[in-house]
Nucleic acid binder design. Sequence first.
RNA 1: GGCGGGAUAGCUCAGGUGGUAGAGCAAGCGGCUCAUAAUCGCUGUGUCGCGGGUUCAAGUCCCGCUCCCGCUACCA
Length: 594
Amino acid sequence: MARILTAVAWPYANGPRHIGHVSGFGVPSDVFSRFMRMSGHDVLMVSGTDEHGTPIGVQAEREGLTNREAADKYNRVIVEDLQGLGLSYDLFTRTTTLNHYAVVQDLFSALHRNGYVVARVQMGAISPSTGRTLPDRYIEGTCPICGYGNARGDQCDNCGNQLDPIDLIDPRSKINGETPEFVETEHFFLDLPSLAGSLSAWLETRTDWRPNVLKFSENLIAELKPRAITRDIDWGVPIPLDGWRDQPMKKLYVWFDAVIGYLSAAIEWAKRSGDPEAWRLWWSDPEAQSYYFMGKDNIVFHSVIWPGILLGQNGQGDHGGVPGDLGVLNLPSEIVSSEFLTMSGSKFSTSRGQVIYVGDFIREFGPDALRYFIAVAGPENTDSDFTWEEFVRRTNFELANEWGNLVNRSISLAWKNNGGIPEPGELADVDRALLATAAESYATVGALLERSRFKQAISEAMRLVQSANRYLSETEPWKLKDDPARRDTVLHTALQVVSDANTLLTPFLPHAAQKVFEALGGEGVWAAQPEIRTVSEEGGPDYPVLMGDYANEQAVWASRPIVPGTPLVKPTPLFTKLDEELGRTGPDFARLDA
RNA sequence: GGCGGGAUAGCUCAGGUGGUAGAGCAAGCGGCUCAUAAUCGCUGUGUCGCGGGUUCAAGUCCCGCUCCCGCUACCA
């Protein structure tokens, strides 16, 4: 048994999340965690909503809300979406908790004490009316190179050159149109160059990482520069230093606080679990493994910057130092990054309405159809495309026909002939062969899941489903009226393999797996689901979190012998088939341009 | 510009450490009828982006080129 931290990227709470988001961090991390739990490992899966920063404020203003109200609103929407998808977080929290603030300040203080945080004056754009930092991407103006009128502050979309916003002609704020002011402002910087040496040395030990992640990270380290970790903004974690703490317009930069969430969420989980020190089992024990799941745009934060922060707080960079109050903390073991999901060939775009929200999707089609699609056709190694036509095909032909119908036909036969799970007689070669295939699948599929090869893993599991369908065609139990002993053996074998296939599919399709488990006469929780619980902190408001009692689920990554005599009832279809018209038109909430 | 990824049957894609190209879908034929008109079997097709090179042998390694995509850090 091993301890495994599943650290899942934190969705940003400035709106509902679309299926591209959950295809990157959500479904893969859950499949992985469920598999690891079933294999007997001690998994801690944490995440939360990322709620600070300028875009929250922009969204809040658009809706006439305060920052806090906007964060509350989208935190809840996202919590409900992820719960609906069945993502089995041990804790899904948020960055606006007192606990998170305390942990972030703790790490900042340790970095500061050890000399990895330095103050510097820089030239930055601020909004004159609010005094807030105006990020480059919220500034537009005329490109000084090509004269294009709508160049962004960081890059000109017309000539492609990278720009400095201060060079723009007639710069203006995209938020409210005012002219940004460029002022000297003092900020803290994370001294990444002084951590580059230890980062390099550490990366050299990551030999099993995907070459592209490793290469990408090594290249970044070669040209690391100090990176700002504070901003002129009133919405964020206060800087825990005298002279800074009380400045209303100085806060820690959102990326810095968000990435610390993996740690703060583990600590919050420990408090809520009743043993406040329990988080150390995943963070302080060098034997514990940590797997970080994210989209490819986030690799740099997890392979370089977050490890840099940890090394600095551990006192393991060029400046040395001593570990912070939390002690020496583990660096990431694995980075599991996904590529991007596109929608009918284009990028998802909220502003152009080219988007499919998770909530809409699962209300209409249920969680497992989406989970299946993402697992089997998601952007695992390369960008992949979502089309309604492909979704309908996968759902109808693969989920409903191959798997759902296998369950249905097997249980139907046994129910009609025996009213329950039949007693097997002597096995024939064909029976043994199928059972052997099923038995071998645990190792095959498991090895793939351990390496986060989800596509291949679910394809292998579905191969067993196909074998079972073939087996029924070959043995034709419906023709064995005159040989009930043989028929019972065949049906028993078929049901056993249905049970095995269901176990193999449980990490991918936990909701359907629970139904199949029950249809085979099982009682109680097979695959546990996350619950929304309302919690609070001393001195703080109530907020919703996702938690779950996963230790009590019965699902185990091993063949579970079915029990002859267990009564069965007439089965109902496992998956509803979709109207093929849907493939051409899309659903009402995401019509293909009609 | 820099870095990275992709380019394989009509379509969607697999093809760690080199050895005469695979799967699913779509199409055709046949079997079966237990099951959500479900299922099972059989039948094709490929200059593996282009041009060189290494090798007995390259989709698989090296060099160059073309096209597509992503990242490029003060975005979250």
